[in-house]
Amino acid sequence: MKRVGWTVLIFCIVSLAAMPVYASNHTTIKDWSEINELTSEIWELGKIERYNEAADVLEFTSENITHIEDVLSLRPDQQRLVEYTFSDAITSLQNPEWTKEKKLNKLTEVRLLVDALQTNYEPLWKKTGLMMLEPFITMEKEIGDQNSTAFHQAANLLLERYETVRPALMVDLSPDKIEKLDEHVSYVDTNRIKILTDAEHQKHLEAAAADFEALFFAKKDNSEPSLFWLIFSIGGIISSTLFYVGWRKYKGDKEEELRVPGKR
């Protein structure tokens, strides 16, 4: 899947179809539910390229979040993160040189961040797992095919997607985990040529992929081969999504057989 696939998936994740306009119904914001409504509206406005209106709703939401900081129980670092993410998104909407995709990515940052602050169960960023892993799979495939252009495109995609998800991760993960992920992404970016040609650097790529896999998906039994190791070992994988779903179904069937003796 290419960049269009990322935008489509994010659209499904945040469930923004046919959202009504909420900003006109609010003079102040009182709780997280209203903030969620507004960030959903903002994304929808961006999708149909009504950037000025989206920026206005963003500014309205940001100002109100600042006013009710005590109600939302934001820590100082979270407050700064919200202010920066909202401000960055507003700037992107007001920049005529930015593409629609880049602007939507910035609005997605806002949506995922607000959701992470609001919920303690199954945050939306968890649902971006396959799209975060896809650049790793593509890079590994292009190493085998010796396609440096496609490899660099996949590396760029990793940077772009990680930037989109990172604010939400900062809410839910410890600083040590964020630092480790940052190091992985930075390593891939600064050592592209070496990764393409050197086996030792390729091991670092595999380690980074494994850590992202562990973050976005359930912890695996150590006795089982890594999902990424299987994918990297099988040539010609076109759809990592279908492969992953099939692998999960196979694992579930095996577990069911163990629970129910004699089941076929």
Rank of each mutant, 00 (worst) to 15 (best):
R3P: 01
R3M: 01
T7R: 10
L9N: 15
S15I: 00
L16Y: 15
A18R: 13
M19T: 15
A23L: 01
S24A: 06
N25H: 14
I42F: 10
E53H: 15
E53Y: 12
L58P: 06
E59C: 04
S62N: 15
E63D: 09
R80F: 05
L81R: 12
E83P: 00
Y84K: 11
W98R: 15
N105K: 06
L107Y: 03
V114R: 02
T119W: 10
L124K: 05
K126V: 04
M131K: 12
E142S: 13
F151C: 00
Q153W: 08
L157N: 11
R161W: 01
V171S: 07
P175G: 00
K177P: 04
I178W: 13
K180M: 11
E183Y: 10
Y187D: 08
T190D: 15
I195D: 05
I195G: 05
L196E: 14
L196K: 09
T197H: 10
L205W: 07
A208V: 01
A210F: 01
A218V: 06
K219C: 07
K220P: 07
N222Y: 04
S223W: 12
S223H: 13
S226G: 13
L227D: 15
I231C: 10
I234T: 15
S240P: 14
Y244S: 00
G246Y: 03
K251P: 04
E257N: 08
P261L: 07
R264L: 02
